[in-house]
Amino acid sequence: MKKIAPAIALVIATFVAIYVGTAQIDSFWSALFAPGSNEILWQIRIPRVTAALIVGASLALAGLMAQGACNNALAEPSILGTTAGAALGTVIAVLTGLVQVGSMGAIACGALGALAATSLTFKLANLRSQLSSFALIIVGIAVSASITAVVGLLSAMVTRADARSISFWNFGSLALITRDNLVGISITAIVGGFIAWKISPSLDRLSLGDATAFHIGIDVPRVRLIALVALSLLAGGAVSTVGSIAFIGLAAPHIARFIYGPIHRNLIVHTAIIGALLVVVADTLSRSVAQPNELPIGLITSLLGAPVLIALVTVKNNVWKTQ
């Protein structure tokens, strides 16, 4: 029961998310099974909840890739600079008028920004000696902070209307999602998820450390690079469409490991389900707690994810040895 609980909770949370909102949907169940019958349901709620599912799964898998590639419990897209890089790539492309938020171009720019920032973190952390967890986290935080500051400066320097839209998106929001946006993030989620599934056995071996992984036949730099590409696609796609949503990449993989164990191939599906569940719940809360106002979803996910981060370094556990 414990093992299927997240999947059951996800199904229930999805229906609740579609049902809950400022506007009451008449004859909810019949409208749900008659596509196009209710405009609010089919043009706003269902695309938004679908986006929440895809974005949650993408960010969670991005976190799994980050932790697996770095062999580090604290690694996640926002700590490695990936999220900030995706934001910068998208903001530059949007502000220069090259692309629109949510378009395929924005997603490509987001993924490129994510890959560039993550590579920069790895390069800098690797400068003095072999990659150490400590250096990776410290450098990642610094890279992330620097890029976030640049994104903030760029947002502040543009016209008021643009700045408002970009700032809002930069804190993370599913409010601007349309059905057209779903195509792009579906592609990055499927491609990124497939790459993650393919390299998952190698990530099991990377957990033994670089030296032992190499001794049993793993091409460590190659596996790490592929994982970073998957991470950048997944995080870049999500961030360029709905903005930065914190802690999903950190919390979801750890929750999945507590329930299902450490084997990465098993974790791919379960981590995606838990990530989708967290974002759907957080989005539902963000638009229903203070109606008619909508809270930034990042605030809710931070409240959900921060305890996981604290537990990781304070509670002794056999799932991931951090002490």
Binding site: L208, T212, H215, I216, G217, R257, G261, V319, W320, K321
Partner: peptide
């Protein structure tokens, strides 16, 4: 290919994940 001709046990193997 190297993994098929030599195997290594290092001195201080540490395990991070709960396999």
């Amino acid at each position: 290919q190297l993994a098929q001709i030599r195997a290594v046990a290092i001195q201080n193997q540490s395990y991070t994940l709960g396999f």
